[in-house]
Design a binder for these strands. Structure first.
Lengths: 118, 118
DNA sequence: ATAGTATATGATCAGATACTCATATATAAT
DNA sequence: ATTATATATGAGTATCTGATCATATACTAT
């Protein structure tokens, strides 16, 4: 057994060294983590899934999810910040839509994974 | 403007009805949410990414991530429960590996998404 | 049996998160 | 300007989460 410079145990030094070599940069880990976090909440997931088909406004999403419009708005802000959705204004109504085909692909892949689980 | 049976506002009833019709079942929402949650934490993400290449034991992962072996073990339990990783025992050492090609695909898709973001 | 090694698990706790409520902003209509 | 509608935002809060520490378990070797 070997020791690294922090005192933690290492059984297979070559594996650890190799893994360190190809490890994702910290910034990328953080970014991917945030991306998946966006999909990790039931409310956001349902919003993203609804928007796959057509744009929707805040209050319709609120009715669909049966949570307050404020809650929907907070979640949409997060999704906007992550550049997963965008909106267009028509009068006082904001219509939200998916910004990126990858959103749909990620959802599809997750569904495929689950449905093959049997 | 219309009202649903819960009193919330609805601007486009046809959109809400349509979205309700194709909505994911609650159980599936929960399952997908949990799947993405597994990828949403930096430590688990780094574990999964490391295991893409080769199996690794708990203490090597602990050295790689620079968190306690206990923390790694807790995260691995979660990943085991979600059937994303599995292990084989050799003496006292447990070697963990990815259980499913979808894990790799999801990671690849996320990376693709980020790198196309420019 | 005893001691040592590798991992698992339970308790605990600080920080993150997802809602609600109250309030603010932006557009429209009178 | 005033009022109404649609959404956004800040504060507050209950819950969830991800780590550590202490302890338990599983296997090995003597």
């Amino acid at each position: 057994m070997e020791q690294d410079n922090c005192g933690s145990r290492i059984i297979h030094l070559e594996k650890v060294v190799g893994a360190r070599g190809r490890a994702l940069p910290a910034a990328e880990v953080e970014a991917i983590s945030q991306l998946f976090k966006a999909f990790a909440d039931p409310s956001r997931l349902r919003i993203l899934h609804a928007l796959r088909v057509e744009e929707m406004c805040v209050c319709d999403l609120s009715a669909l999810l049966e949570i307050s419009e404020s809650a929907v708005s907070h979640q949409l802000r997060l999704l906007r910040t992550l550049r997963l959705v965008t909106n267009r204004r028509d009068g006082t109504v904001l219509y939200y839509r998916l910004l990126d085909a990858h959103v749909t692909e990620l959802l599809d892949l997750a569904l495929l994974h689950l449905r093959e689980e049997k």
